[in-house]
Amino acid sequence: MIKILLFAGLREEAGKSEIEIKADNLSISGLKQQLLETYNSLNLNGAMIAVNEEYATEDTVVKSGDVVAFIPPVSGG
């Protein structure tokens, strides 16, 4: 299982803050595709990605047990 965390506008679009997907050894872009099969209106394009609380890229490969966060443009401060 890969845990996906959603924030801000993405959280509202999905109607939930966490989604679990059965997958292992999957690239972030593959994970996105799988996510969009169920949540097809989710706009993930502008979001940065973090794997286990570290910024990652589209080709980062995630394993079962990893936590992937989609991070929309930030606006703290």
């Binding site: 502008g46 910024y55 929309p72 930030v74």
Partner: peptide, 18 residues
Amino acid sequence: WIGNQKETVPYPSGRPHL
């Protein structure tokens, strides 16, 4: 939800620099 402070990039477009 605000994408950045200048409101030029409201979520979900744009991507901040790392």
